[in-house]
Amino acid sequence: MLDGVPQYLASGLVVGGIYALIGLGFVIVFSVTRIVNFAQGEFVMLGALLMVTWQARGLGTPAAFVLTVLVVAAVGAVLERVAVRPLRRASGLSVLILTIGAAIALRGAGLVVWGTDPFAVAAFSPGPPLRIAGAVVVRQGLWVLGVAAVVFALLWWFFTRTYAGTAVRACAVNPRAARLMGIRVDRVFLLAFALSGALGAVAGAVVAPITYATYDMGLMLGLKGFVAAVLGGLVSPAGAIAGGFLLGVLESMAAGLLSSAYKDAVAFIVLIAVCLAQVTGRLPWRMVEEE
């Protein structure tokens, strides 16, 4: 039974990379706006399905990728401008329900535009799977891990090395002080949502060759990405990456070594345990700070 462990680990890392990429989108919005954006998974769905559409129109993967990211970033921006901004002073719950409404509407739009059938998306670099240390890894899996690394590096650079990034961080720490310092909070919110849209699109585009693209893929992927982000603290990009890998490997090991029927239950038991460990101070890393 233990023969499978290298394979479980490899599969878990690839799936974890998927969760991590999606989790990053939650982190960007939450760290700046304290909003849990339920529509994040739908950004992923849009990213995957737009890739299908552009590829069907004959665009190459790079062009389709750029176009997809731009369009979904715009969707994120529109969501902020039209719906989130009027609710700036409302309770967090109202905004949560608002994003649930947005998620439902986007999923419905996906159904109207693309129908129910799943679509295949061409792999970025086609070819037979690779054998690494006794495990089979598909090429697109390496793309997922590579893209996650690049996105992480870009975010780090943006947040620590650019003015706009610093402004975003300032808003995250203390919006009022940031405003007094002349930072336009409205713009920062807009930027955060646009970025999360772009990130969702990147995730959707790069995972679609593995998962296929369907209008209803957003709910489950969004949920797993959210769990990954929370495991890592919900305000830290590095945490989201770590949380994604933890969740992916857990699921894969549980399916391989324990019981495939209860693999999701196992993952969520660990989630609860991690939440409890945080409160009792037994967790070596910090999750969400208590409010």
Binding site: M1, D3, G4, Q7, Y8, S11, G12, V14, V15, I18, V136, V207, I210, T211, M217, L219, M220, L221, S252, M253, A255, G256, S260, A261, K263, D264
Partner: peptide, 18 residues
């Protein structure tokens, strides 16, 4: 078993293969 929304069924297949 696997879920309809699972993105990877390799672990289960690895078990069966074994």
């Amino acid at each position: 078993k696997f879920g309809q929304k699972d993105v990877d069924i390799t672990p289960q297949l690895t078990r069966v293969k074994g």
